[in-house]
Design a protein around this nucleic acid. Structure first.
Length: 804
RNA sequence: GCCCGGGUGGCGGAACGGUAGACGCGAGGGGCUUAAACCCCCUUGGGCCGAUUCGGCCCGUGUGGGUUCGAUUCCCACCCCGGGCACCA
């Protein structure tokens, strides 16, 4: 009977489902393990990235289940969002229909992989029963002042016709579609993530099971800088403006000041000056160039605006410029410029002939421009002679004493812009009333149902705005005429709390039962792509902290252990449909089977690394499975006198190795022991093996293989006469005595170079090892006539003889 | 520029500071076969030496140093590749 992967895989997928093996309930008596892969966008086609993700996830689900844990492994769909809407605009099929058809397709494909989930917990963010809790969450944030609407300069994607969060702008381009983003002044909804900045930053330190890379990226994104802010008086006026600097110790070196062209004071200051026309032209030009252009142009440009600022420490007047290298979005949008210690200021000063004063003594061999390193403070009055830290402390004390400024901290992190001018998302549950203003929709009126419409093409405002019968409503406060908010929420809102919902997915009364969450949370293992290092993972941490503050969550951090998988490459490029270099997993299910494909993904390299695809590798894992199949199903003659003790011992060693490797996420090295034991079993079966040894070795192989290639493992388990389901069997344990070796190969080195190998008893005494090594024939030729200075003995593995 | 990773055979990759190259792919040779596929066996880092089927030596983990009896592994400097961040004051 040949190995028929197709028939076997279909059979067992049906069995697992009907046996409901992976449906779980909270049970305090059993240790829990919440295992989660980032819920996918239902694109309609499983690709190798999904396969890799779910193979790792399913391996853990099955392994931890066999190891005795109560394993929660749910799957759901990140089903709101632009791709569905854009596809719908192209095909004319409504996003809801399209999305639901794609969910059905992908569900089938995920099941074909043999990945098991508790499907009773399936959720989809576009369903009313899900997004009503998005809206509920919004209302809680609104009540706490954490959701607010304000006019702001925001990122606008001209192709997707919607605003974007800062996190969704990559190098000045839309993260989704790649279009160059524009700046627009619009009234938008924000979540006040900046209230949580310090906590988000501090708690990164507690995430010691996260990749360092991701922790660093989050720290960088939050971008904490410590320094001082203080007021600069504009000479001969009543105006002053705040500046922020990380180097207040260099204040005596300020030879000019710069305002961002968008700074609120600019308009008033330039009015009526000689420089007004020139300044206005500059502001217009700066305002019309995109961020991409501003980034590309690193040449410093600016205009003197005809006013001076007074340096508080020495009352010197310095010219004020406007220049676009000072960004309105960071700090106060204004700086004291110290060309001696800042390269950007240096370039500007050099270009416009402004004085440069060094206030930090550079080393003698320094020949650069601005000196940003440490050194003794010079040319700085009462700060002279102090090192950086002392000087900073002294000047802050001085500023505070004079009530001019103070030590402050600035962050790069901005509030999270969550409103979108698109259709396929959760409507923001707010009503605008002429009399009452912005009124939140009462909780008992949720959900605000997304109306089914036919024209959802983007027009620069939400398509919902055109649906009069939906927009026009009554004010929940006064009963008068009112209009609904027409923006929808960023889909990252949906994904920032779905892992809580999985703990209690059918709750119609609450977002989730805090008791369910307290049993299952935190997610013990979270698996997904590193592209979410900042976006989703930061938002999810923020919302978790909000839920914690509300008493709904017992954890401050949602994901205890994070695992980011590498991507699949082909011919050096990321495998993707747009590059046309995909190898379709569905074809491989047919030709090689899900088991061989899964095994290849595990085997191809370290799971965190990018991996180069090679279909020949799947041929290899299929060959291995076929060989295992044949030896298990075709061995029918046994020799009870044969000695297979070494093979059995190797099987036990494999148990140890595989167990430890899975625990350490070294999946690629967990596969080879199965291959070598199988190969040795084939040899042993050929030369003679007892039935007992054969059964012990094959049972170990099936159990170890069960999380990796579950279908064939289950089938062989059944064919071997077991009535039980392998997935419910306990994980094997190794016999520590059995894996001990009676004899080992001892390496003998002379001066660290390998010169001989000697078989020795494993429990050889150090003295015996040394004597044996020194008397070995081959060693004699190396040490003859030489003085033996030292002998290092690491019995029973190694002896190193050091000669003169 | 700053911050993370990473440089090992033809390829993917293994190696608690202790036998470098496990396992797999590819390649070469052989067996089975009328033939091919499948399958099975052998070889496979480079160079050299001796020899009746076996053995031996030298070199070799990006480069140069260092620590150590011993370094792919630890330390320092440098080079290259990948990724992230960046007029962030």
């Amino acid at each position: 009977m040949a190995y028929d992967h197709k028939a076997i895989e279909e059979k067992w997928q049906a069995r697992w489902e009907s046996e409901r093996i992976f449906e779980v309930a909270a049970d305090e008596a059993i240790p829990k393990f919440y295992n989660l892969c980032m819920y996918p966008y239902p694109s309609g086609a499983l690709h190798q990235g999904h396969v890799r993700n779910y193979t790792f996830g399913d391996l853990l689900t099955r392994y931890k289940t066999m190891a005795g844990f109560n394993v929660l492994s749910p799957l759901g769909w990140d089903s709101f969002g632009l791709p569905a809407e854009n596809a719908a605009i192209e095909t004319g099929v409504h996003p809801k229909e399209n999305t639901e058809a794609q969910i059905a397709t992908m569900t089938r494909q995920v099941k074909q992989l043999g990945a098991m989930y508790d499907w009773t917990r399936e959720l989809a963010s576009h369903s009313e029963e899900y997004y009503r809790w998005d809206q509920w969450l919004f209302l809680q944030l609104f009540e706490q002042g954490l959701a607010y609407k304000r006019e702001a300069l925001v990122n606008w994607c001209p192709r997707d016709q919607t605003v974007l969060a800062n996190e969704q702008v990559v190098d000045g381009h839309c993260e989704r579609c790649g279009a160059e983003v524009e700046r627009r002044n619009l009234a938008q909804w924000f979540f006040k993530i900046t209230d949580y900045t310090e906590r988000l930053l501090e708690d990164i330190d507690t995430l010691d099971e996260w990749p360092e890379r991701v922790r660093t990226m989050q720290r960088n994104w939050i971008g904490r800088s410590q320094g001082a802010s203080f007021a600069l008086q504009v000479a001969d006026t009543d105006h002053s403006f705040e500046v922020f600097t990380t180097r207040p110790d260099t204040i005596f070196g300020m030879t000019f000041a710069v305002l961002s062209p968008e700074h609120h004071l600019v308009e008033e200051l330039i009015a009526g000056t000689e420089q007004e026309a020139e300044a206005r032209a500059y502001i217009r030009k700066a305002g019309s160039s995109s961020d991409v252009e501003r980034m590309a142009n690193t040449d410093k440009t600016g205009v003197f605006i005809g006013h001076h600022a007074v340096n508080p420490v020495d009352s010197r007047s310095v010219p004020i410029y406007i220049a676009d290298y000072v960004l309105m979005g960071y700090g106060t949008g204004a700086i004291m410029a110290v060309p001696g210690q800042d390269q950007r200021d240096w370039e500007f000063a050099t270009k416009y002939g402004i004085e440069i004063i060094r206030t930090v003594q550079p080393p003698d061999d320094f020949d650069g421009d601005a000196y940003t390193g440490d050194g003794v403070t010079i040319n700085s009055g009462f700060l002279d002679g102090l090192e950086r830290e002392g000087a900073i402390a002294a000047i802050i004390e001085w500023l505070e004493a004079k009530n001019i400024g103070e030590g402050t901290v600035q962050y790069r992190l901005r509030d999270w812009l969550i409103s979108r001018q698109r259709y396929w998302g959760s409507p923001i549950p707010v009503v605008n009333c002429d009399g009452c203003g912005m009124v939140p929709v009462p909780e008992d009126q949720l959900p605000v149902v997304l109306p089914h419409i036919l024209d959802y093409a983007p027009k620069g405002r939400s398509p919902l705005a055109a649906v009069d019968e939906w927009v026009n409503t009554t004010c929940p406060a006064c009963g008068g005429e009112a209009r609904r908010e027409t923006d929808t929420m960023d889909t990252f809102v949906d994904s920032s709390w779905y892992f809580f919902r999985f703990t209690d997915p059918r709750n119609a009364e609450q977002i989730f039962d805090p008791r369910a969450a307290s049993y299952w949370m935190p997610v013990d293992q979270y698996i997904g792509g590193v592209e979410h290092a900042v976006l989703h993972l930061l938002y999810a941490r923020f919302i978790t902290k909000v839920l914690f503050d509300m008493g709904l969550s017992t954890v401050k951090e949602p994901f205890a252990r994070l695992f980011t998988q590498g991507m699949i490459t082909l011919d050096g490029a990321k495998m993707s449909k747009s590059k046309g270099n995909v190898v379709d997993p569905l074809d491989l299910f047919e030709s090689h089977g899900a088991d061989a494909l899964r095994l290849y993904h595990l085997f191809m390299g370290p799971p965190t690394d990018d991996a180069a695809w090679d279909t020949n590798g799947v041929d290899g894992t299929l060959r291995f499975l076929d060989r295992l199949w044949r030896v298990v199903t075709e061995t029918d003659r046994f020799d009870e006198s044969a000695d297979a003790s070494e093979l059995v011992a190797d099987a036990h060693r494999a148990v140890k190795k595989v167990t430890e490797d899975i625990d350490n996420f070294h999946f690629n090295t967990a596969v080879p022991p199965l291959m070598t034991v199988t190969n040795d079993l084939v040899d042993q079966a050929r030369s003679g093996i007892s039935r007992e040894a054969f059964v012990e070795v094959t049972e170990i192989l099936m159990k170890l293989l069960s999380p990796m290639a579950p279908h064939i493992a289950h089938e062989l388990w059944e064919l071997s006469g077991h009535e039980t389901i392998l997935a419910r069997e306990p994980w094997p344990v190794w016999d520590p005595e059995m894996i001990e070796r009676a004899s080992v190969t001892m390496v003998v080195q002379v001066d660290g170079k390998l010169r001989d190998r000697i078989e020795v008893e494993a429990d050889i005494a150090a003295a015996d090892a040394e004597r044996l090594a020194l008397s070995a024939e081959k060693i004699q030729t190396w040490i003859e006539g030489k003085e033996i200075r030292k002998v290092i003995v690491r019995e029973p593995n190694l002896v190193n003889i050091v000669v003169g």
